[in-house]
Simulated scan of single mutants.
Amino acid sequence: MSLPTREALLRALDTVIDPELRKPITELGMVDSVEVDRDGIVDLRVLLTIQGCPLRDTITSDAGNALGAVAGVREVRVELAVMTPEQRQKLKEQLRGPGGERGIPFSRPGNLTKVFAVTSGKGGVGKSSVTVNLACALAARGLRVGIVDADVHGFSVPGLMGITQSPTRVDEMILPPVAHGVKVISIGMFVQGNTPVAWRGPMLHRALEQFLSEVYFGDLDYLFLDLPPGTGDIAISVSQLLPDAQVLVVTTPQAAAADVAERSGTVSTQTGQRVAGVVENMSYFDAPGGERLEVFGSGGGETLSRRLSETLGYAVPLLGRLPLEIALREGGDGGLPVVVGAPSSPVAQELERIAGALAAQPRGLSGLSLGVSPRH
């Protein structure tokens, strides 16, 4: 059997995706050398971004498998090294532009990422569960999705997503862990165990600003922010840092919950943001005998949708009503969102429908410069 060419080996390595940057290792300059000897033994030298790269074994395995599938390869030997400061700087400039430009990419003119701030009037309505499941449903459609767990005091997204890995830091740039195709960052990834975070307003604002400016998400189609309940510091910070973010309001059918949730929606009249819709959680429970029980009452989502539409002067739709199901709770406890772990369940199907409604909204081109000018 003839030996593979270097071009064939590089084509195989094009399929090896860095687990954090989500780009081919060949494109990221991580392939330092690849050679094959007369016996069909391939020696590959891969440059990691940092010495303690937590996914070094994954990269080694994926690269070995990709090269091992090339005709004529008998054995693959992978050597790992680390990028020099100059190589890391080049990588950062490749990812973020000249000089490794910092700032919040999602607030720059021309950015096409659709940002949704998921909020609620009170805690315990399932806001975080809705956030992670909508994100996972969109990622499963092949879209690029990220989550910022902005509920600094009550962070829960890492547990709901099954993330135990810490972010990787490349100098001042942070690479978020990826789970179920979604890039995630949370203050819970930087504290030990269940340590509480006792911060006041300015520190909360700075933490959110760092998540948005120092974490490399890449070019996203959708970014979800899981906000704390109510209309406090973080909600105000989001409106300042991401003025074009749209708001998704989560409530339960209970009238009292809808009353409180209305405040988290109408605060948009002060921040200038638009409310994209309402999601009603825990709407009903289908008993084994076929009886439908409205455990928390009924009509809260519809009432909230109507009130917000009247107050804001535009249609705020009720995007969906999620049934009360054990599968949703079990998925959250096990770190496997229900749309991934039990996609045929009624609650997963409704979440998929809501995600489809969000995906149907195209990334807007209004006001975007196309870099062309008419000829005279």
Score class of each variant (00 low, 15 high):
367 G>T: 00
349 Q>W: 04
362 P>E: 07
351 L>T: 07
362 P>K: 08
368 L>I: 15
352 E>A: 14
356 G>A: 14
361 Q>V: 15
367 G>H: 00
364 G>R: 13
356 G>E: 06
341 G>A: 15
345 S>C: 04
359 A>C: 08
369 S>L: 12
347 V>D: 00
342 A>E: 11
368 L>V: 15
357 A>L: 15
346 P>L: 06
353 R>I: 02
340 V>G: 03
348 A>S: 14
340 V>S: 04
355 A>M: 13
369 S>R: 09
367 G>V: 00
344 S>K: 14
366 S>G: 05
349 Q>G: 04
358 L>H: 11
360 A>C: 05
347 V>E: 02
357 A>N: 05
348 A>V: 03
364 G>M: 06
340 V>R: 13
359 A>G: 08
372 V>L: 13
357 A>M: 14
362 P>M: 08
358 L>T: 12
364 G>N: 09
349 Q>F: 00
345 S>G: 01
342 A>G: 01
354 I>K: 13
358 L>P: 05
358 L>C: 09
355 A>I: 11
352 E>P: 03
356 G>L: 15
354 I>G: 09
352 E>R: 11
355 A>E: 10
365 L>S: 13
355 A>P: 07
359 A>L: 10
360 A>E: 11
355 A>W: 09
359 A>N: 11
340 V>C: 07
356 G>C: 14
363 R>M: 07
356 G>H: 12
339 V>C: 03
359 A>Q: 09
362 P>F: 08
355 A>N: 08
350 E>H: 03
343 P>D: 05
339 V>T: 01
349 Q>Y: 00
343 P>R: 04
342 A>N: 07
356 G>Y: 15
369 S>Q: 08
354 I>V: 15
340 V>D: 01
352 E>N: 11
339 V>W: 02
346 P>R: 04
359 A>R: 06
342 A>T: 08
344 S>I: 00
351 L>M: 14
347 V>W: 03
365 L>F: 06
370 L>G: 14
370 L>D: 08
363 R>Q: 15
359 A>F: 09
352 E>Q: 14
362 P>L: 10
357 A>F: 10
368 L>M: 07
344 S>M: 10
349 Q>P: 02
365 L>P: 00
368 L>Y: 03
351 L>N: 06
354 I>E: 12
346 P>N: 00
343 P>W: 00
348 A>Q: 04
342 A>L: 01
361 Q>I: 15
362 P>N: 07
347 V>F: 02
348 A>F: 02
359 A>H: 11
355 A>S: 10
365 L>M: 13
351 L>S: 07
370 L>I: 08
347 V>M: 03
351 L>A: 06
341 G>Q: 08
371 G>F: 08
354 I>N: 10
366 S>R: 09
371 G>H: 08
356 G>F: 15
349 Q>T: 15
358 L>G: 08
352 E>C: 11
358 L>V: 12
355 A>Q: 10
343 P>T: 02
366 S>V: 13
357 A>S: 11
368 L>G: 01
350 E>Y: 01
370 L>R: 12
354 I>T: 11
360 A>G: 12
351 L>R: 06
339 V>L: 04
370 L>W: 05
343 P>N: 05
339 V>P: 01
350 E>W: 01
